[in-house]
């Protein structure tokens, strides 16, 4: 895709004292895509999202969201009108009813779309008179989404949206995200749930320990990531397989296991040249890619 990225950062860094939460992040998110931002708890996902939204000031580096600089107060205000954000803890006032919450939030936005709000209220089957504090987690998520979507955002950013939802709730959430993407909304969401990301995401970013380790389309990852299991009569030294694309090599007696992010054919060819008696190439699931990447780091 050649279109301008909706999110772009250069060397974005955030340190708290001597601890770096995000280190030299170069992120690029394409429009009209669903991008998943994966990482363990504490990897720096939320800090990154907050920097993008202008809620946390970067220690160094820069970035733009929808072409507007994240550190410029004026441009940030403009950007926040076009971007909707669903925070991890979904802060809502427990004493208000669903209906009161919607009315309250709508008063802050001049471009509020009451028609969308009432359509979603119906679709999500939210009880208007119910107090927020007595809503289930799934309903709270739906309400938070409704509040974000009634502003017709160009970009929707969600921080761990499925946190605390049961499998049915997660399936609903993913369906909602898919429907939004079909309407042309660009979606950027953080998660540590691989299974939910694997189906809906077009693009994957893996963050670990503040660093961006993977930034690729899921199709690419699926097609190029391979685990190659080799058996040798006399095992060659591991360095024979240290070629471009090889991420990791494990040896056990006569067996060797090579993880390649690309170039699997070259590994296979080399194995044949080194007289491997068995060569098995297998695809690697996203879960394994994630665990391998994080282990490497």
């Amino acid at each position: 895709m050649t279109s301008t990225p909706v999110i772009q950062t250069r060397d974005l860094t955030k340190s708290y004292g001597s601890a770096a939460a995000v280190r030299g992040l170069n992120l690029s998110v394409e429009p009209n895509c669903i991008t998943a931002f994966l990482g363990q708890n504490g990897a720096g996902k939320s800090t990154t999202i907050k920097m993008l939204l202008g809620l946390v000031r970067p220690s160094s580096g820069e970035g733009t969201v929808l072409g507007m600089r994240i550190t410029d107060a004026e441009e940030n205000r403009e950007m926040r009108r076009k971007v909707a954000y669903v925070a991890e803890n979904k802060p809502l006032y427990g004493y208000m009813t669903v209906e009161q919450t919607i009315r309250f939030v709508s008063s802050f936005y001049t471009d509020w779309r009451a028609d969308i709000a009432s359509k979603l209220l119906n679709e999500y089957k939210l009880p208007p008179q119910r107090k927020v504090k007595s809503l289930s987690k799934g309903m709270r998520t739906k309400l938070a989404l409704l509040l974000a979507l009634a502003r017709r955002p160009e970009l929707l950013i969600l921080d761990e949206p499925s946190e605390g939802l049961d499998p049915v709730g997660i399936e609903h959430l993913l369906q909602m995200l898919v429907a939004l993407a079909a309407d042309g909304v660009t979606i950027f969401f953080s998660s540590h749930q691989i299974a939910e990301v694997e189906r809906v995401a077009d693009h994957i970013c893996i963050l670990d320990n503040g660093r961006l380790l993977v930034n690729a389309s899921l199709d690419e990852l699926r097609q190029s990531y391979r685990r190659i299991d080799l058996v040798f009569p006399v095992p060659p030294p591991e360095r024979e397989f240290q070629i471009v694309g090889v991420e990791r090599i494990e040896s056990k007696g006569h067996e060797m296991r090579v993880f390649a992010s690309k170039n699997a054919e070259a590994v296979v060819e080399r194995a044949h040249n080194l007289n491997a008696v068995s060569v098995e190439v297998a695809p690697v699931a996203l879960r394994e890619i994630f665990l391998e990447t994080v282990k490497e780091n």
Binding site: N32, C33, I34, E171, L174, Q175, V178, A179, A181, A182, R199, V200, A201, D202
Partner: peptide
């Protein structure tokens, strides 16, 4: 349609 099938399969509409 793209939207309907994407929702049914719960995959990205781009897929």
């Amino acid at each position: 349609g793209i939207r309907t099938l994407a929702e049914e399969l719960v995959v990205s509409p781009n897929t």
